[in-house]
Design a protein around this nucleic acid. Structure first.
Lengths: 148, 148
DNA sequence: TGCGTATTTTGAGGTATTCACGATAAGGGG
DNA sequence: CCCCTTATCGTGAATACCTCAAAATACGCA
């Protein structure tokens, strides 16, 4: 299942921008639109930030990407979809790492009281200080550059 | 522990705006800044949206409010703090209800692999269709007005 | 009551993202 | 292989949500 096949399978056209985007996200998971734009700009000088947002929305809607929005960060994107994994986010620098599902299956948790909601998924976000930020104790209040 | 005492205890001055804000959030939990602004505007005509954001930030920083940011929604605020409860969010209308902690204690979950992060909290968000939106099956793609 | 300072107002600014629409190019049919 | 249809992309404007700076105001201790 190559990226091109995934696109066609979702009824989407195969374009240079989408291929490059999928490739970039694969090598730098949890990137935001801005950093993906910078990464692609070298190979695709005519690319616009809006197009990156467009592509990210289309590919997310098609299920080729998963979009996550940790509090305090711009939306991040990753290629691992449908496996119900979770995330560990640094309180300080907002770096993100994947965490395999605590329970094993999706949805991995069931609310004690669903209040009439038809629950379809459980999203778990762990918050903590990453190793790099623990080494900068005096500056943990100053967000550092993202390093994921 | 009245709201005024809570404010003083946190080293904050007791102002009409803060008292009104705490009262409004108590009666309409999970409100966003905009709807709180509209609710307070009647009693406090000189109030500005920026002041509401200011107050919400100050009170959240002081621990009198908890701020949550579900994907796709503006920040919401609630008075229940420090009890490690979770949330159930409607995919369609974004309404929110509280869900008591699945495990009972904070942090209620531990990531299987902390990857060097010093984990301090686990945030769980359940997603599903609320009862009202289930009754509008043909329009579930059209977000309705929030009703929380 | 008066003063110092926290808070609010006012206005501008910023970031992330979406929308509208003309230009471009993917890819099926001939 | 070329053409045509239409999805996609580029450009520019617009929006939502929120923060920042500085002047005006008001809380609350003396």
């Amino acid at each position: 299942m190559t990226p091109a096949h995934e696109l066609r399978g979702a009824g989407l056209r195969v374009t240079g921008g989408r291929m490059a985007l999928l490739d970039a996200i694969t090598s730098r998971p949890h990137s935001d639109a801005e950093s993906l734009f910078r990464a692609l700009k070298k190979a695709l000088p005519s690319l616009s930030v809006q197009s990156v947002h467009n592509m990210l929305r289309d590919l997310s809607d098609a299920g080729l990407l998963r979009r996550i929005e940790p509090a305090g960060s711009a939306a991040r994107y990753e290629r691992r979809t449908g496996d119900n994994h979770h995330h560990l986010v640094c309180i300080s620098c907002k770096s993100i790492v994947d965490v395999d599902c605590v329970e094993g299956k999706a949805p991995c948790l069931t609310p004690s009281d669903a209040a009439g909601y038809a629950v379809t998924m459980a999203e778990v976000t762990f918050w903590g200080l990453c190793a790099s930020c623990q080494d900068l104790p005096s500056r943990t209040d100053i967000p550092q550059a993202t390093h994921n």
